[in-house]
Design a protein around this nucleic acid. Structure first.
Lengths: 217, 217, 217, 217
DNA sequence: TGCTAACCGAGACGGTACGTCCCGTCTTGCG
DNA sequence: CGCAAGACGGGACGTACCGTCTCGGTTAGCA
């Protein structure tokens, strides 16, 4: 259950098909676009390969020539949405956190992301290659923001420099789990909006801990 | 897509069918047990209603008489696993948090929970009644632990008493999203173990914020 | 697959149920009436035992207590319709034949008969007890008309007296197969009406053979 | 409930699907053969589409792609059996009739025909397209024998030439209903064999009418 | 310019699971 | 004990998708 190619990643990992008609590049984007549209219209569980093919004006075989199945296709289709995440310098760690959390939440609240993300993660609990694909296509792409933000905060003197690389990695992973997990839970499980006020409180908690978050409004 | 009854919840929400043969109580438990076994063996996406029926020694129609579909059935099947969550007084807020987080992670790491939970949450993004069922069967049942732990910490003087009920609810919701979301993300997305050391660091972060967590090992 | 009782036949063949509540006699007629109504509305193949029970205001168990299944029930339900067949003396063999054929066709063209009769005969090809039940309930009841009509024609001198009883039985069976079979085929297979003109030609053929029927209009 | 195609009839009535994989011709014959075998083994009412598919080594969907349901499938399966009916010139009308009646009865007494024919006719009382299919596939194919035999008899001078085409058609229809209906009734309702002696008497009746048939042994 | 290999659309194929309907049987509690 | 109600185990239904497989028909790039 591994895709034969990784079309949007650009790497030509297909085993050197020198001759013959090359694959349509336009089809790839049409398929991913159709996949996102189908996610919006139907949600994960009602999305079918045949329907995506029809929407993309493509034969089913063309889909299977490029992706191993629904899981892989959907991961690629939503992965590009996370590319727009950025971390402009807003002047302080608190402002940086607020900014990126709001951006992240905005992506999660899109209907195609909302329905797809948890589903593929659920599938990935039994499918290691899929888990790896999710990690490289989506998760790691976000984690670099944590590293970047932390480095910036250290330069500002807002956070202490970690004792060693291991400790640094451990803290970064923790922060990433806390940040991403909390926003996902708020959005998908609690089904509550991630608005400016909530983000402010969350940032307070992140920076100062429970007593800080409990203090005032 | 609403279950006709809510068998394990005990509430007689069926409109009082006085007459006719009563539903077998034994079948309910056999079905839920079979569902959990099928989740362990097959995972969410390969679990089928027919297979569950066979395992439970029950006709498929009996399943559909009681649950509207796979989603509702699985929610009920895993919900009972969360009943074992408790919050014994371990002497301090930090110890209480560590204890409950470890318990929660232990449940999440069970194979039936791991594969099922994210899947039904994913489905619930397009199915409000299912979302509600998840909330009442699983989520709210955990949230009371947060309230209980917080009240205990206030009695101990470890946390300030909130200004008003609204603020109290807001903080409780936030803490719940942070705690549950983080553990879920660590377990299912990062696919890393929730061990004593990680819990210690997470508790440090929760109590003291980023700088506290960054400080030492 | 033999009915426990033969309700419309009147004979109390139930094995002396001395004690307990006696069976409702009214239920029998209600069930047969409901069966005929269901045949009209739904046809044979869509008629269900549950539906008949509901229409009759009776529990399904009550049906099964009295009839072995759909086949037996339907045979009994349509059998009574053939009771109205009579053979008044119309003065000549030709007139007698025309009269009884028209009567017979009128019964066959009723929607409940049309859909049920061929169906139970089809079932009876693999079910000897059912075939026997059809014979006693429906077929033999018609055959006596042939015998009666033939005897009357002999008294009138329109037909020769057969040489012996065996020959008499053989001829009667043949005439019966010809008369009943032809009308059934005309009605159900050719799906053409059995009107006075057709009956006149058929009677001509029966009395005088092919050349007689071919002669004039 | 109209079949999408009419496979054994050969006529390409499907709207010229130029593109895509063509339907397997071998599958058609395998399915019809499996249907006949299932009719022999199980009879009409116990025959299931799934079982036919299994016997034919074919997916259930392939059946439904070609036939609308059990009725249409069975009509096509038994229709070919009637193709073997022929009318060789035996020298006289009486001999011709005897020959074709014996042939017809031989087909009707085959177990697959016996159980299927009445059943589909019963179904056709509520299903006009099915009735039409039966007529074109089975009934009309037999009726031409009547026309042929009659023409031959006229050439021989055994029967008078009808006054006009309307009268000719009327007589042919009548003879067909009498011949087919009588044999069917004898075979399926009376459940008696159609042997040479019975055929002789039936032919006598057909040619000379009641008094001829009553006369001698 | 003409070959040829891989592409493409369409759609039939063997399969699996679905959710429903009906079967005929079995508890219930009431009369 | 009959009876209405209705749950039960079971089997078949007809449908929807799955992922694979032919088809006839492009469409490059090399010769």
């Amino acid at each position: 259950m591994q895709s034969r190619t990784t079309p949007p990643s650009g790497r030509p990992c297909r085993p050197a098909a020198r001759t013959g008609r090359p694959r349509s590049a336009a089809a790839d984007e049409a398929i991913l676009e159709a996949t996102r549209a189908a996610l919006v219209d139907l949600g994960w569980s009602k999305l079918t390969m045949g329907d995506v093919a029809t929407r993309a004006g493509v034969a089913k075989t063309t889909l299977y020539r490029r992706w191993a199945g629904k899981n892989e296709l959907v991961v690629d289709a939503v992965a590009v949405l996370f590319d727009e995440l950025e971390l402009p310098d807003r002047g302080s760690l608190a402002r940086d956190i607020e900014g990126v959390v709001l951006q992240f939440a905005a992506i999660l609240e899109r209907p195609e992301t909302k329905t797809a993300l948890m589903a593929v993660v659920a599938e990935s609990t039994r499918d290691a290659p899929l888990r790896e694909r999710i990690r490289t296509s989506i998760v790691e792409r976000q984690k670099r923001l944590v590293l970047e933000g932390r480095a910036r905060a250290e330069r500002r003197g807002e956070l202490p420099v970690p004792a060693d690389a291991v400790a640094a990695a451990r803290v970064a992973d923790l922060i990433f789990d806390v940040a991403a997990g909390t926003v996902v839970h708020r959005t998908l499980v609690s089904a509550e909006p991630v608005d400016a006020e909530w983000v402010r409180h969350f940032t307070l908690l992140l920076l100062g801990g429970l007593s800080a978050a409990s203090g005032d409004a």
